[in-house]
Nucleic acid binder design. Sequence first.
DNA 1: TTTGATGCAAATGTTTTGCATGCAA
DNA 2: TTGCATGCAAAACATTTGCATCAAA
Lengths: 126, 126
Amino acid sequence: MAVIKYSRQREAIKEYLSQTKEHPTADTIYMNIRESYPNISLGTVYRNLNLLVEMGEVLRINGMDGSDRYDGHTQQHYHFLCNKCHKILDLEMESIDHINDTANKDFPGKVEGHVTYFYGKCNECK
Amino acid sequence: MAVIKYSRQREAIKEYLSQTKEHPTADTIYMNIRESYPNISLGTVYRNLNLLVEMGEVLRINGMDGSDRYDGHTQQHYHFLCNKCHKILDLEMESIDHINDTANKDFPGKVEGHVTYFYGKCNECK
DNA sequence: TTTGATGCAAATGTTTTGCATGCAA
DNA sequence: TTGCATGCAAAACATTTGCATCAAA
């Protein structure tokens, strides 16, 4: 089973994601990391993002738009997508984990979690 | 502004989607419609799916997997994704629309809706 | 007759992969 | 020294689009 070795590229990606409030695409991440590591390749960015998502250190947000977006802040929180300017914002809200129980009622399998995002108009667009 | 003309291809897609319980991909839909319309093209399927989604007659489900899936049953319902066999099931559950209000609290913009899907293990995989 | 819809193929955009080389352990 | 990670380029996918032709109104 593959041992995971240190790589400065992966560190740079993690560092960049933990420090930004945006929810960048792989390409945006690539552009940014390139400022410190001009030789990094897009393939490496994708490979590391997949690794980090798998390890639970980064969240992948998809279905918003053509390409996936990534979020380095893994504490439980929800996202808001503006229908007008397509910005993604973090929502500070109380837990809605009880909807798992609602879903589990009368369901023969086992609901373990949910993925939710909210949409509407952001502060500037409303 | 574009008038929408009747097309038997679009009818066939709508009919197929309203009759299946699966949540097929564009390609699966294409394969099926091809049995009655051998000359239909994948481009036409995509064009019509986009149209139907825009008209609200079909739901697009994304973020589950590489490619988007479509659902002809537009009454409000939630989806469940099995982590093991990757099946998508419909959930019969009470409304959780109140989570919009939860999200709206302390949010400067305006939350208009949400997208939610549940995951876990289905009846056969648990 | 007019104009939207289609089929076909080429183009686009995103993500993955094969392979030789580099680097961590 | 071993084998995972990288850079590069090509490949793989999913989806969109240009254009000549077809068909609905």
